[in-house]
Structure formats: C-alpha cells, structure tokens
C-alpha cells in the first residue's frame, strides 16, 4: 500500500518532470503536441482544484452561519453574491450552461458593475494605506532607509506633472533609477530566483523534495 501512497506519486512526478524537461529540447511536432496536450491536462486538473477552493470557502462560511460565530450575518452576503453569479452564469442568458457562453448577459453585467468596480476600489484603497504606512516607516532613520526614501520620492515625482514643475531633471532621474540601479538589483534577484527554481525543480523530480505529498501515510 505504501507503494501506491508514496512511491507512485514520486514516479508520476519523475516521469512528468523528465518528459516535460526533455520535450523542450526536441524540436519535433510530436514534442510540441505533447506539451500542448499535457498543459491542457494540467489546466483540467487545476479546473477541478478551483472547486476545492470553492468548497473550502463555502464550508467555512456555512460553519460561521451554523455556529452563529460573531459576524455570521455577513457570510449570508457571501452566499448571496456567489449564488447570483453562479445562477446567472449557469442560466447563460436563457441558453443554459451546456451551450456556448453568451455575451451581454446578467453574468457579464455582474462582472462589469460588481466585480470590476469592487476590485478596483479595494486596490485603490491601498493607496491610502500605503501613504499612511510610508508616513510611519519612511523616516530617514539610517543610511539604508534614507536611500529607499529618496529613491521612492524621485520615482513618484518623476511619474507626475508636478515632478517636472519642480525640476526637469526629476523625470530623467526617475528613469535612470529604473533603468540602472533598479535593473541591477532586479537582475540579481531574478538570477537568484531562477537558480532557486531550477534547484527546487530538480529536487522534486528526483524525489529529494517531497513536501507536496503532505504528511501522514
């Protein structure tokens, strides 16, 4: 049984890893088709994973309502939002879900007038919190904090007309920061990240890294 529980997943990871790594170096149509098919398979599996996420969210909110946890009433609105979106999506403008997706339906209306404005507003609120966080943390307490502060101020001023009004050199300085020191640091980080990803991938393929199997038997 241990073979099925632990060894088979490692064999699957090894076979898929080696296959997908080697297909990159085989410029044959069959290799390209393999990549397309396996990527699509990956998307199908990820599609099912989406439903696990949905189950997890609904389960958590259902338990909040069931056990009357503080603020349980708000969970009803989560079900309301999800219900409206799912029902309108399945209704599909009268064509029902097994037909092609119709445009200009209630589902699209919900996306345009609920999801998009809510998402944009949530992210725009971050502007206020970032400004407040910057006020509290951006004090030039040491050399490093001062460098960070000056760099952030120049980049912010360089992106707005008031920066040019203060000095015509501010946008030039902002561009220079983005293309020289920022590029250097980002390049070094990317090199480090790449080496890390490659090393971790090799460890997964050869069964050294097994965290994805989880605990237990």
């Amino acid at each position: 049984m241990n073979f099925l529980k632990r060894t088979v997943p490692m064999i699957i990871a090894f076979v898929m890893g080696v296959l997908m790594a080697f297909q990159y170096y085989v410029p044959h149509e069959a290799s390209q088709n393999l990549l397309k098919v396996v990527t699509r398979w990956g998307m199908i599996i990820s599609g099912f994973a989406m439903f696990i996420g949905a189950y997890s969210l609904f389960h958590m909110h259902w338990n909040r309502i069931k056990h009357k946890v503080s603020g349980w009433g708000y969970s009803i609105f989560m079900f309301f939002g999800a219900g409206i979106a799912i029902i309108s999506g399945l209704y599909n403008g009268g064509e029902l879900f097994w037909n092609d997706k119709q445009s200009g339906t209630m589902f699209d209306w919900i996306f345009d007038y609920v999801q998009v404005p809510a998402g944009a507003t949530i992210f725009s609120i971050l502007a206020f919190f970032m400004a407040s966080a910057a006020y509290r943390t951006f004090r030039a307490r040491n050399k490093e904090a001062t460098i960070l502060l000056i760099s952030a101020i120049i980049v912010m001023l360089g992106r707005v007309p008031v920066g040019t009004m203060i000095s015509q050199y501010i946008p030039i300085a902002a561009d220079w920061i983005m293309t020289v020191p920022n590029l250097a640091a980002k390049r070094a980080i990317l090199i480090g990240v790449s080496i890390g990803v490659i090393a971790t991938s090799i460890k997964i393929i050869f069964g050294i890294e097994k965290a994805y199997l989880g605990g237990g038997d």
């Binding site: 996420g53 949905a54 969210l57 609105f77 989560m78 079900f79 309301f80 939002g81 999800a82 219900g83 409206i84 979106a85 799912i86 999506g89 919900i110 609920v114 999801q115 809510a118 998402g119 949530i122």
Partner: peptide, 8 residues
Amino acid sequence: IFVGVAMG
C-alpha cells in the same frame, strides 16, 4: 458580496 461574486 465581492468575495462571493469573485468565487462564483
């Protein structure tokens, strides 16, 4: 509502 709509 936003969380629910996003999931739906």
